[in-house]
């Protein structure tokens, strides 16, 4: 019985998903399975049969970074980088469920992903910045739409 993590890393050769603990504690192996954030080290591969899988490799749109990734880069959310793919997945998941989180909500939403480098401050800031940017983008789009449709 393979773990989903092993299938991702070894069979699909998508090595952006990391193994930090193998016990569902660190979150470095976080991926989306049918749109839900899961620890791929705890998912039997058999249970992923027919499901939609999205890993860190599928977060950016080609060369265009996802807003969360761009914010991590800008705000210093990544240090050694080993927790970063999982952390980005958790942040994307949080912003999907809760597009404008306050600091406590961010801290709760990321609490399943351990980071030993940052003390979480820059990660929290990255997520807050990504949320803000998403609002700005949405407003721009709205205004552009309003302009085009008098």
């Amino acid at each position: 019985m393979a773990r989903l993590l092993d299938v991702i890393r070894e069979e699909l050769d998508l090595t952006g998903t990391k193994e930090g603990c193998g016990e569902g504690e660190c979150g470095a192996c976080s991926v989306f399975l049918d749109g839900k954030l899961v620890n791929s080290c705890l998912v039997p591969a058999a249970q992923a049969q027919g499901a939609e899988l999205r890993t860190i490799e599928g977060v950016a749109d080609g060369e265009q970074l996802h807003g969360v990734q761009a914010a991590f880069l800008e705000c210093g959310g990544a240090q050694c980088g080993i927790c970063t793919p999982g952390m980005v997945m958790a942040a994307v998941d949080l912003l999907r469920r809760c597009p404008q989180p306050d600091e406590a909500q961010i801290r709760d939403g990321l609490a399943g992903n351990l980071c030993r480098c940052t003390g979480y401050v820059k990660i929290v800031d990255s997520v807050a910045s990504a949320a803000k940017r998403a609002v700005a983008v949405a407003e721009q789009a709205l205004q552009a739409g309003a302009g085009a449709n008098p």
Partner: peptide, 22 residues
Amino acid sequence: SRPRKEGRAKVTGAAHYTDDVR
């Protein structure tokens, strides 16, 4: 505050760690 030099590789999962070597 210049952005992290290898930051892009880290946020996209492209950075290569020892266990990623084939």
